[in-house]
């Protein structure tokens, strides 16, 4: 079995759900350093420090023949001192496990520079949250949910640009940390993720992302999220993402913004 061989940064980095992508959004790129002739993978750890909360997560993914991707992520949304103000208790944390699968359907983001056709992939993310009682108390319907998405990614090398657009069918409240479906809207809604990046070098991408989210819960409004990010390939195997992120209001606490730091090791 062959390992390695992928061009720097073309596996993407690990996004907030543990899938190959940017920071906030899931892309059509397949994780791991493998080419279509081999297998690869990536492990990662991410920390997000927000105004009133923090999020840490770790996980990994396997890339198969640059065609399919399976990922697993364990995430902890820590309310810290804010937990006491919410009546949950100090350092109350929501834990979530995300299992993801992605299949590349058609198109090529990297090599097909003579065509506008993006690389298109479809996938799902199965999310399991362990705080059933709290989720029901705030108006959430379920503690598990599945997101379905279609992502299109294109690198425009002659412009040094990387573009991505993703459509997501989801019931998730705050990425799933507050459960799935709610008292205001219990069903699926279509959400959008957009990313635009500029390749400063073959190892450094700077860009911005925007991600809309459902607004299912009556007790607190949910807003769109955005980030300004830099992804850097330290070596061919090791990459880092640093971002300024704004997730909007979370559980009545306004304007949650802060820093997103992620390290990924790929093979």
């Amino acid at each position: 079995m062959q390992f390695g061989g992928k061009l720097d940064l073309t596996r993407g980095v690990a996004n907030v759900e543990g899938a190959g992508g940017g920071g906030l959004s899931t892309w059509a790129l397949i994780t791991g350093n493998e080419t279509r002739d081999g297998v690869g993978g990536q492990v990662y750890g991410t920390y997000v420090g927000l105004s009133d909360y923090s999020l840490n997560e770790f996980g990994g993914g396997v890339g198969l023949f640059d065609r399919g991707e399976i990922s697993l992520s364990r995430q902890t949304f820590d309310t810290g001192a804010t937990g006491a103000k919410l009546g949950l208790g100090k350092n109350f944390a929501f834990d979530q496990t995300v299992v993801g699968a992605k299949l590349r359907l058609f198109g090529d983001a990297v090599y097909a520079q003579d065509s506008w056709m993006p690389q298109v992939a479809a996938g799902l993310q199965y999310k399991m949250n362990d705080r059933t009682a709290i989720i029901h108390a705030v108006g959430g319907k379920d503690d598990t949910g599945v997101d379905y998405y279609v992502a299109a990614t294109k690198i425009l090398l002659d412009q040094s640009l990387v573009l991505n657009g993703t459509l997501r069918e989801t019931r998730a409240n705050q990425f799933g940390f507050l459960g799935f479906g709610g008292d205001r809207n219990s069903g699926y809604s279509t959400q959008f993720e957009g990313s635009a990046g500029y390749l400063v070098s073959r190892r450094l991408l700077v860009g911005a992302e925007y991600r809309t989210k459902p607004d299912n819960l009556g007790f607190a409004h949910e807003n769109s999220a955005y980030d300004l990010l830099a992804a850097f390939a330290i070596t061919h195997s090791l990459s880092a993402t640093a971002a300024y992120v704004n997730l909007g209001d979370i559980a009545t606490f306004r304007n949650q913004r802060g820093f997103y730091i992620s390290l990924q090791a790929g093979f």
């Binding site: 090599y111 065509s115 002659d158 040094s160």
Partner: peptide, 10 residues
Amino acid sequence: QARLLAKFAP
């Protein structure tokens, strides 16, 4: 470099 590579990638 990227403009040249864009020609060779296909």
